[in-house]
Nucleic acid binder design. Structure first.
Lengths: 143, 143
DNA sequence: TATTGTTATACTCTATAACTATA
DNA sequence: TATAGTTATAGAGTATAACAATA
């Protein structure tokens, strides 16, 4: 591993932590938090699944996902239904409200981030898009 | 603004939130948290400053920085000294322990991230380096 | 006995509001 | 009166440990 790669690991860590701080702070009046939005997005992309599977997919522990799912169910954004054959499990699915909210978020929210991106040139946008793909692959890998 | 830019805003938000979750979770046995490390890195790069200036630079509210600085001082990683002319202010500076820890972190920690980066090709590393610069500029802008 | 999900509990990070000391 | 910093308090996000229900 090169010195540059090690420095990149450190710099990338600080950059994403600071960016996350911004993003979370700017959503205080949003309908759902980024944690909730992340779970909704996974349900949208991968379909209904059990809380355990969603926890694994989001890379959090099951009790953490219990709380997220409970809050989303209370908001009517997901629905919980019994598993057809295994009484221990339940199936979490996106409700129509959840789908609608997700569409709104994807297309119109993230105002601050949208503004930042508007100030960038197309080369920078291409770079960020590529970075998103790399990071997504990184955090999606099974352990 | 294009549809692609809006989708990028959404995807980038989710990617960095998920990556941050990973990074924080993997530091439970580290000497300092990412929040503390971020403050140390700013002190290292920009020199000693008041808690207020550090809060502004890190884009957090002053009470949040009070806690971070207090925890770092308790660990002996920063020192607090009186402002030469203004009795209300104090100056926070990196201690030699703080500098040493920062050097260690930069060069040897972030083990998980280092491992992920080791699996990437040089083109991806260049992309991530560029993305770090773009994100850093984004979160460093005065409001 | 093993697995799934939940409850109980605790810690970190961050915020706003109120307070103290100094300018 | 205004500013810098701290204290008090609260809420979100996450974790581990212990529990209940079902397989």
């Amino acid at each position: 591993m090169t010195t540059e790669t090690r420095a990149l690991a450190s710099d990338l860590s600080l950059a994403v932590v600071r960016l996350t701080r911004h993003l979370r702070g700017r959503r205080v009046d949003a309908q759902v938090s980024l944690t909730q939005l992340s779970a909704l997005a996974t349900l949208d992309q991968e379909g209904a699944m059990t809380p355990g599977a969603l926890a694994a997919r989001e890379k959090v522990q099951p009790p953490s996902m219990t709380r997220v799912v409970a809050s989303l169910a209370e908001l009517g954004l997901v629905e919980r239904s019994p598993h057809p054959t295994d009484g221990r499990q339940i199936i979490v699915s996106l409700s129509s409200s959840g789908q609608a909210l997700l569409a709104d978020e994807t297309h119109a929210r993230e105002a601050w981030m949208n503004e930042q991106l508007s100030g960038l040139g197309s080369a920078d946008l291409v770079t960020l898009r590529s970075a998103v793909e790399i990071i997504t692959a990184m955090v999606s890998k099974p352990e």
